[in-house]
Design a binder for these strands. Sequence first.
RNA 1: GCUGGAGUGGUGGAAUGGCAUACACGCCAGUCUCAAAAACUGGUGGGGUCACACCCGUGAGGGUUCAACUCCCUCCUCCAGCACCA
Length: 823
Amino acid sequence: MYSFKEIEEKWQQEWLKQGLFCAQAGSGKKKYYLLEMFPYPSGKIHMGHVRNYTIGDVAARFKIMQGYNVLHPMGFDAFGQPAENAAIKNKTKPDIWTHKCIELMRAELKKMGFSYDWKREISTCDAGYYKWNQWIFLKMFERGLAYRKAANVNWCPSCQTTLANEEVIEDSCWRCSAKVEQKDLEQWFLKITDYKEKLLEDLKTLKHWPERVLAMQSNWIGKSQGVQIYFRLKDRDTVIPVFTTRVDTIFGATYIVLAPEHPLVKEVSKGTPQEKQVLKFVAKVTKESRVVRSKKDVKKEGIFSGAYCINPANNEVLPIWIADYVLMEYGTGAIMAVPAHDQRDFLFAKEHKLAMRIVIQVPGTEYRVQSQMLEAYEGDGIQVNSGQFNSLPSQEAKIKIAQWMENTKIGKIETHWRLRDWLISRQRYWGTPIPIIYCAKCGTVTVPYEDLPVELPKDAPFTGEGGNPLNKVKEFVNVKCPKCKGSARRETDTMATFFDSSWYFLRFCSPKFDQAPFDKKETGYWMPVDQYIGGIEHAILHLLYSRFFTKFLRDERLLEFSAKNLGGPADLCGGDEPFLKLLTQGMVLKDGEVMSKSRGNIVDPDSIIKKHGADTLRLYILFAAPPEVEMEWSERGIEGAFRFLNRVWRLLESTEYGVQSTGPKKKDSEKLRKKIHKTIKEVTEDIDNFKFNTAIAAIMELVNEIYQDLNADIAEAVKVTVMLLSPFVPHLAEEMWQKLGNKESILKAPWPKHDEKFLQEKVITLVIQVNGKLRSKIEVPVDISEDKLKELILADERLKPWIQDKPIKNFIVVPQKLVNVVV
RNA sequence: GCUGGAGUGGUGGAAUGGCAUACACGCCAGUCUCAAAAACUGGUGGGGUCACACCCGUGAGGGUUCAACUCCCUCCUCCAGCACCA
């Protein structure tokens, strides 16, 4: 058994001492910026971290040995609620607790032997970092991208704070179980919607992002093209705009529905016999939280408003309904209902006995009777009952009707988006203070740049009573107006932590820079991130926000970079996409479930390090599954990895290095040489493609081969094995490298290259098929002629029963692989 | 419902038109040992046979091809994200 503990500690110190991972811009080498998503400092790393960071570390060490100038930084996403909860529970302060956690976590990361440039470490909770959050916020404010408006939020009356949708569990607060209310509050937003076109369009340039992440982002932005149609009230001039993507069904509209929150609800029902019931219904529905409303599916509730409007396409009079299945947040908050061609409208119409009319005929079938329909037909077909558009294919009619509506001004072609502006206000202490002051005289005033950072007060009270502790710190809240010097009040909302992580990759380029968030020269050199690695859970928000920030900073000319100048493909990067390549690693499961505290199925990485060492853990986690797939934890697998490393270690005893053996020079093995070069080729390609599991398998094969050939000269084979293994198990590799007589770190050794000439075979085994079935194998020289081959095959005893004297129809030769005889 | 992905031995997985199951785990047998562990050697998809031969086999069914885990069509199951999105 090799003494992993000693070896690992030794080399971790050595790397640090030699500063092997300290990056500097501008060497003659090509740059490579490798980044893994930085962790929240919980105090302990978990297997998810180990997997994420091990994958990154392999790539980093591989690129270093290939001669790249590698930037591989690490930091901590340190703001967030857990620190406040800990402060309340343990009678401590969030910053003390957080810094303690960071220390513990940093120590654990170091024990894994990751190749980070620790001189660049950042924590978002340090004023030296969040000062620049405030700086960027002010820049956005100046451009009108940061603004305040009233928003409907989830509010916990007992904690006195807003809750994210994820924090609302079954209509109650996740922390105190109080019933969550809907409340309108003044909140800060970022106008990400200004960038919706760019954010959607540029997804096309991200050719090295996983398909599913692109799909998720695209869905989230949610572009849909359609027509806004104006429905006039029957006896008044009031107009209800309605949005539809199915304008081809306009002649099938039989009623109109308004969302309960729609501003016209009161006006429309005013003076009708239904007025009272309508108001009662609206009051009831709007009281329910959004969470509850969207959860109860199927059952659609609604009520007739008492009013009517005119369908502008055919001047039909349609009743106006109010129903909870129409959402105020999407489109215009009003729809035209086409029960024959929309399933939701269909169900509602059946329930309330409303009219229905087919306007799209299913191709190849007879015109159907409405009463026979069991569900709405939502597909394409031929227009019927549609006036001048009859008998057109519905796809074509969609375009024609839209144009006709534009021309006659009864509608307007429009595009709707799902993406909303980003709510960044949090009524919490442990976050970046929003640098705004409210003055009775001057209104909303920004904190001057020279007054940044607005620092968090150290002595805020953490009582557990709820509410934002910042509100209780008088010295923080009561300030002088920067403009008129009169007394004013400071904003106490802090920023959502997603703000912090939306530009940290830029800060890493110049972590100590004090003139701006980042040094433009440094970002110009290092950006974009060549390879980004992290969990799929950040596929939407974090990545979208980071893309938004990068585009904004580029537009402000604060950030300028280009992949083209650095030899990257031109189409990959227009200087406003932060991450060139993205890898989303799979989760680590145990017994088929995600490892989590509540399930009690956590395996602590530290316990594995103690028992088998970091190298074993690294090797196992890489070998068990391809990086992007979820992997099942297995104790047996760990033991297998450990066994393999010991087997590799024992190779030292068999070489002339290490143990000073001075026997006669051993013979060269051609077979082994071939295997060496084949393995170099495979491993290099596999690491390039992040196929670490097969790369390791290939090295295992090489090791097996060495043991088969112990009587030959294995020195070269062992040397190559150690080099190929070094990105995966760096400590063991360094120690063996040194024992093999090398003076410098293996990281300074150039990555081995295979030589094509050793891969060429003189004699190969050809697979012989008859009618596509394997029947024989023969050994032939590589350069055998087809005629000669045919001769050999016809002479093969094993093939005779299959060929007999049947005529040969076809004779297919796949060079150096197989022959298929078709009879 | 929409979008994306997956389905291969007892298990994790490999092969993306050309020998299905590389590599590893597990299991079985053996060597060493008083014994055990470690290490090493051999075997290990199913059927069939004394043994070979041979047949079957990558979720199901069809198709393209000399040849399909791989490409096309239809369907099933599972996972993930989004969703009264008009």
